[in-house]
């Protein structure tokens, strides 16, 4: 049995080291200011900021959300201040908090991603760049980048070339594809150091009073516990074909148990998103619980548990005392 003082909870993406594997999910923590009221941002692995575009964006009309069974749909439309205001206001503020920062970027064209990467290249204090390719590509019939291997590769190659070798790149993929491992292989060979899995699933709610789509943007992204099995599956499949690539797993993580599931599937970090809306301290709770679970199950480090569900021999050395926890929701 290991104890809290010797347990190694850290994780690495590219060359960057994070003291804990807990990240906020992009778009679910804004730029951290609002959450700083509830816990010190420096205590988690990193703040992943809301995907930032080149220009300020007003986003989609309201209603922008609909609660669904164990989940929610959102259609924010990437509202944001644009990269200039973001770099001027949000990054310096996060640095005063001693938070590690992962900047999420989104573009409408391959070039836009590269321009964003160029803006970030010389900014101090950025631990990694997350490339959100789950946005519609205006150059290619509005098809989401992450649904097309060629576009996905083009974006990551462009960002890699512009940003140089020092800042790790994390590609964020969409689950709305036939074979997520194909896209994962493509972006990794294009230069991604890590993968974020998964973005939201496209969904719709129809308001039975008005008898029209409920959301102002008609369709929205499904998140929350409802998508967790889909996300765990995606992480498992991708880890199987790319076992050396760090994965940040996300989708409905609400507790340490949920996060543990992703670690076992092959994630070396986890993001908490929608759960923050229900509980501003959710990410701290998940972090504490995950650490406790890993220690109590006899792991000496986080990395030892990564992908543990893939082991062939279930009677291996690390046979843990099984409890009834597995069968619960």
């Amino acid at each position: 049995m290991h104890n809290a003082s010797t347990f190694d909870f850290s994780t690495k993406i590219g060359h960057t080291w994070f003291p804990t594997p807990l990240f906020t999910a992009s778009g679910c923590a804004s730029s951290g200011k609002e959450l700083a009221q509830f816990f010190p941002l420096s205590e988690i692995g990193a703040v992943v900021t809301k995907s930032i575009a080149l220009k300020p964006r007003l986003g989609r009309p309201t209603p922008r959300m609909a609660e669904t069974p164990s989940g929610m749909l959102n259609s924010i439309g990437l509202q944001g201040p644009g990269i200039d205001a973001f770099l001027a206001d949000d990054i310096p503020w996060l640095m005063t908090q001693n938070a590690r920062i992962v900047v999420s970027i989104s573009g409408e064209t391959v070039d836009e991603y590269s321009i964003l990467a160029r803006r970030l290249r010389s900014v101090p204090g950025i631990s990694a760049v997350e490339v959100n390719i789950s946005c519609p590509n205006v150059e290619n019939r509005g098809l989401v980048f992450a649904c097309d291997p060629v576009s996905s590769r083009a974006v990551i190659e462009g960002v890699r070339r512009t940003i140089g070798g020092d800042i790790p790149i994390i590609a964020k993929l969409s689950p709305d594809v036939t074979d997520i491992t194909e896209i994962a292989r493509e972006v990794v060979s294009a230069g991604a150091d890590g993968l974020s899995l998964i973005n939201t699933l496209l969904g719709m709610v129809i308001n039975t009073q008005t008898m029209r789509p409920h959301l102002g943007g008609k369709t929205g992204g499904l998140s929350g516990p409802a998508i967790r099995p889909v996300a765990v599956r995606a992480v498992y499949q991708v880890h199987q074909v790319l076992p050396k690539i760090p994965i940040i797993g996300m989708g409905g993580i609400r507790s340490g148990r949920d996060a543990f599931e992703f670690i076992l599937a092959g994630a070396s970090g986890v993001s908490v998103g929608t759960a923050i809306f229900g509980n501003p301290r959710a990410i701290m709770d998940v972090q504490n619980e995950l650490k406790e679970i890993l220690i109590s199950r006899g792991f000496a480090s986080l990395s030892e548990a990564v992908g543990y569900a893939h082991r062939e021999d279930s009677t291996g050395a690390l046979q843990r005392g099984a409890d009834s926890e597995e069968s619960e929701g």
Binding site: G27, C28, A29, S30, K33, E34, L35, Q37, K50, L58, G59, T62, P63, R64, M65, E67, M72, N74, I76, Q79, I276, F277, P280
Partner: peptide, 17 residues
Amino acid sequence: EESMACGIGVCMTCIIP
């Protein structure tokens, strides 16, 4: 009154022009 997902300013669902 706009529908709110988080109530604490992190989700951007509750916006008013």
